[in-house]
Structure formats: structure tokens, C-alpha cells
Design a protein around this nucleic acid. Structure first.
Length: 270
DNA sequence: TACCAGGGTTCTA
DNA sequence: TAGAACCATGGT
């Protein structure tokens, strides 16, 4: 099926460092694995995308996953015509970026893995985990064999050696213990969705390997707390070098996380 | 070959 | 309480 939507550029979303299982297949064509499904996408025009799924799957899952009901055009347009010179350039450069609504457990584990790793290394590591501990599936429409993201149970009972072989390094125990906590019900991920931003951060940071930065990424990409503003080494450089540590995030109340995403994407291109 | 990566935890002063 | 040291591994 074909959908038309403004501010939806696959190239930018796939390389924005918020999801690690969206890959470029060839020019303008991408695959993404989420929710136990695989989807192929092709950018036909700036506002036109071809999807391999049925209309039913689109309505029930992918539309929400790509947050297609939210008006990014208004926000990004506001930044482009705003007064902040850096954000003007960032918004123009990253036009088409959206904040995905990813599954909570996958977001939690992948961002625990992300610490002190480059994006290509994270993607490789996540794929390795899926192949070792996920479920093997075949999609006839996409003509693809793929692996789902592992369940909390399968990661919780994974051996330390197997996790090391997947390239987790010292994060192996973080992943195992966190997966175990979810599997045993020591933390109720669904319950996090009912909490405020601050309360959710507090709960997330009780988990091993989850500090303030990872918790903010989980809040933004997994809980869709759109005001979350994760500060990693790149954002930290911007706050210091561009804004002399005087950046006022409260100006962007209601969409700070989107601002953060455009900053991150732009600074990495420089 | 060095250096760095969407950091967190623990130790030390 | 703030800052330094340490952690394992892949990409460039």
C-alpha cells in the first residue's frame, strides 16, 4: 500500500540512532523489524512511501509505530523559521525525522547495549542477540527470513558466555539482570506507561546498567515521553560548544525530545 | 595503530 | 558530593 504523509523521510529515520533494526536495503528502500513483524518501505517521493504490509497491519501497528498521526510538520517548520540559528540548520537538515514508538523491552535492552558503543556496533550486537535468542520467522510478502527481538525470558536465562559472544562486552550482566527483572515481574514495564516522566525515570534507573541517559532514551523512544531530552556525548558537545551551557530546554516544552533528535542528527553530520 | 563510541558503576578524596 | 578510574569490543 502507498501512504502520503509530510515529514516522513526514511533515510533520516533509519540513520537517526533511535532504532537499531531499520536498515537500508538499496537506494530509497529500507526494512524494519518490530512487533514480531518485518516491513519493507520504499520512498517514492518526498511525501509518498510504499509499504509491504496490508492496510489492516498498517492501521493496527505501523501507523502508530511511525507516529504518523502527529503533526511534525508544524514543529519542524517552527524550528526552521525560528530564531535559533543552530536549530534552524538542524531542522532543515534533518527534515523528515520522527520519533518512533518502539516496544518498551526492546528499547530498554538496546539502549543498555548502546553505552560506549558506536551505532554500527550497536546494530551488529542487537542483530546477533536476535539471531541467537529471538524467534526465526519467514515473511512471504517480503520474501525474507528474519528474527524477532528476544523475550525477557529468553534473555534472562541466556548464558553469560553466549551474551559475550554476541558482543555485549561488560554489558552482559546488565542485560541479563534487567531481562530477568522484567521476566520475574520485579519491574512492570506496562505500569511505567501510567507514570509521569519523572516517576518513570526513577523506576527505570533502579535497573542495572540504566543511568540518566539510557533512562531518558527509554522514556523518549519507548514510552513516548516527548519531553525527554537524552544527553549523550554529542548533545553534550552541542550544549557546551554551541550554547556555552546556556541552552534553555524549557523553551521547547511539549516537544523537547524532537528538538534533541534533530540536534543529534545534525551534529553528527558536521 | 590509536582513538572513540547515543555511559554506568564504583572508588577516592 | 564531585570527580576519576575502570569496564569489553568494534568501527574508523
Amino acid at each position: 500500500m502507498i501512504i502520503e504523509n509530510s515529514n516522513f523521510i526514511l533515510e533520516h529515520i533509519a540513520s537517526s540512532g533511535q532504532c537499531f533494526r531499520m536498515n537500508k536495503i538499496k537506494e530509497a528502500e529500507f526494512s524494519v523489524i518490530a512487533g514480531g513483524k518485518v516491513l519493507l518501505l520504499k520512498q517514492l517521493e518526498e511525501q509518498k512511501v510504499l509499504l509491504s504490509c496490508s492496510e489492516k497491519d498498517f492501521k493496527e501497528f505501523w501507523k502508530d509505530y511511525f507516529d504518523l498521526d502527529y503533526d511534525y510538520e508544524g514543529i519542524v517548520g517552527g524550528l526552521v523559521t525560528g530564531e535559533d540559528e543552530f536549530l534552524k540548520k538542524a531542522a532543515a537538515y534533518g527534515y523528515g525525522l520522527r520519533i518512533l514508538k518502539q516496544e518498551l523491552f526492546e528499547t530498554l535492552i538496546t539502549f543498555i547495549i548502546s553505552q560506549r558503543k558506536s551505532i554500527p556496533a550497536i546494530k551488529r550486537c542487537v542483530e546477533e542477540l536476535c539471531q541467537r535468542f529471538g524467534e526465526r520467522k519467514t515473511d512471504t510478502a517480503a520474501n525474507m527470513v528474519y528474527y524477532t527481538f528476544p523475550s525477557p525470558e529468553s534473555l534472562g536465562k541466556a548464558g553469560k558466555e553466549a551474551l559475550r559472544e554476541a558482543g555485549l562486552g561488560y554489558r552482559d550482566e546488565y542485560v541479563r539482570q534487567t531481562a530477568l527483572a522484567v521476566a520475574k515481574g520485579d519491574i512492570d514495564l506496562d505500569c511505567l506507561k501510567t507514570l509521569s516522566y519523572e516517576e518513570a525515570l526513577k523506576e527505570l534507573m533502579k535497573l542495572p546498567g540504566v543511568g540518566i541517559k539510557v533512562a531518558n532514551c527509554v522514556a523518549l523512544y519507548g514510552l513516548h515521553q516527548i519531553d525527554a531530552f537524552p544527553v549523550d556525548v554529542w548533545i553534550d558537545r552541542i550544549l557546551k560548544d554551541i550554547y556555552s551551557n546556556k541552552f534553555d530546554v524549557t523553551i521547547y516544552n511539549g516537544y523537547a525530545g524532537i528538538v534533541q533528535q534533530y540536534m543529534f542528527y545534525y551534529i553528527r553530520s558536521l
